[in-house]
Amino acid sequence: MHIVVCIKQVPDSAQIRVHPVTNTIMRQGVPTIINPYDLFALEEALRLKDRLGASVTALCMGPPTASESLRKALTFGADRAVLLTDRYFAGSDTLATSYALSMALTKIGEEFGTPEIVFTGKQTIDGDTAQVGPGIASRLKLNQLTYISKIVATDLEAGRITVERRAETGTQVLATKLPVLITMLEATNEMRRGTIAQALEAARAEIITWNASDVGIEDLTKCGLRGSPTIVKKVFAPTARSEAAAMIEAEGTMDAKARAVVDAIFARAPGVEDDLTAQALHHYV
């Protein structure tokens, strides 16, 4: 079995700052990480590998420095890493990203065997759209399984897979045919630590690097900014609310303070008090 996991290298958004004057992202010095949601996808792939003996390919579209994230994927135990990098990909939105990645996936299929499962994370922490996975599935006509919390069974012979999917108000149990695209839900597993041998192998490994023409993209207008139907016209910082909080300055005991808080709340929201009282009444009756 062949499994491909799409991982994205993202700036660690916890450490991102916005330039106070120009409102641009100050990326300088902000470390990059593997999109945390993608680690759940990668670990799930590695578990399938442990169980079924699959080979796992990690795929990332990004700048040349994204090879660091791929190398890390190898350290965890992926068998192969492919970096898709080309300046024509710059500024891709989800439609253009899913196009480039699906072209790379096709090429991966030709070179290393058609994947039965393509994994993506639930979403990224920078783009944060959760659309690239479904986009790839649509393009490659893979059966789409999003928000998967558990892989219940995989029957390679019959080419079937059964999963649990997180719906809005419950869990769907779905069965479908391979090949599939799975977007893995967060907190469904915990990433392992590679062995010293894997770490050494990863440090030595060659990252397979392809550009647009390597994956057979002839029409560059489908890529990057030009291939993106969405257009970012304005980027701005959220406005601060005009007034800061009214501070409750109560002296005395905690109880006195608590009473002052309750008074302040109900003074501002008398309706809430009425409703809470009614609700309390309801309880006592």
Partner: peptide
């Protein structure tokens, strides 16, 4: 020896 599983180097 390191904190990863495996032989010493």
């Amino acid at each position: 020896r390191t904190d990863r599983q495996g032989n010493p180097i």
